[in-house]
Computed example of a mutant assay.
Amino acid sequence: MSTLTMSIAVGDRTVSDARRVSELGLSLPDASLTGIVAAGILAPPATSGATRTGLQWNSQSAVTGDDVINVESVVTRVEQSKDGAVFDRHVRLVDDGGSVLEQGIETWSSPEPSDVRFDPAVDFCTPAWGERLRESLSTDTAFASSLSSWDGTVGLRCTDSSGRARELHLRIYRGNIIDVARRVPGGATFTLIARAVTWVDLVFAERNDFLRRAIRGEFSSSGDGYEYLRLTKPLDIIIAHARSAAREWQSVPGHTLPLTCGREARP
């Protein structure tokens, strides 16, 4: 079974043992609930005392009793306050052939603020995250060179469990990021858009495969499509710096990834 962790952080993953659905002892009035209940059995709360407060679910191919599945989960967002902690977890039901049958986004609430570990390096598309990028990119000559004659604004958007969007604008002039804000006058030249789970998978993957994911349609864009395509190189550099910040944070003492059972989770 998946294990419980003492402190939840963005990027934490679990994988359950593979089980045949008919062996889980489910007796449901509505077969459409099978996947949701199976996920709850195979992927218990990530921390004791947490309560699930929200769920969005999508069934590409509804699971049946004959299916052999395991459940992969990854934490995509955490928030901490004096009143407690909230975190989102993306859950996938995967069959024995590696196909995702059903998936969803759970929102969990805990009365203990210490149940989550937060850092701007993994709070994607927020001003604090953008300031980390600006500081890091300020010394990257390849980034400056790739935008040496450009004057515009790059938007970066991350959609979360409720459909809300965290969006960041990087105002760039001749290779330098001169402003970081939620919005800039005139708006973004173009905006790069992805789900929270895509950002997490990208920054913690073994290699920077942004271009491959973009071609597969995991990222979309709004605004000036020509400029978006023309600035592929600087976007790839921005992603590389986001990956470095996230992986550096993940490697610091005190952050231990949860143990997993069964197949290794796929980013």
Rank of each mutant, 00 (worst) to 15 (best):
G152C: 07
F190W: 12
L229S: 15
E218C: 08
F219D: 02
A242W: 02
R243Y: 00
F143H: 00
F143E: 04
S222C: 09
I215W: 14
C158G: 08
D140H: 01
G155N: 14
H169P: 08
F190Y: 15
F204N: 09
T191R: 09
R182S: 10
D224A: 13
V200L: 06
Y173E: 11
S148E: 05
R164T: 10
A142I: 02
G217M: 09
L229K: 15
V154N: 01
I178C: 13
R230F: 09
D140N: 03
T198S: 09
V184R: 06
E131H: 07
S162F: 11
G187D: 02
T189L: 02
N176K: 15
E227W: 15
T141D: 00
S244T: 08
S162E: 14
R157Y: 03
D179P: 07
D224F: 09
L170Y: 09
A165R: 13
S149R: 06
W199T: 01
R134W: 09
P185S: 01
L170K: 04
R132Q: 05
H241R: 13
L229Y: 09
I237P: 04
I238W: 06
S148C: 04
L202A: 14
Y228W: 10
A181K: 06
G152R: 08
W150N: 14
L192D: 07
D224V: 12
N208I: 04
G217P: 12
E218V: 01
K233A: 10
H169E: 15
S161E: 15
E218T: 03
D201V: 03
R171D: 15
G217W: 06
A214Q: 08
S148D: 11
D224N: 13
L235K: 12
T189F: 10
R212K: 15
S146A: 08
T141F: 00
A188T: 08
K233L: 08
P185M: 04
S148P: 01
I177E: 01
N176R: 11
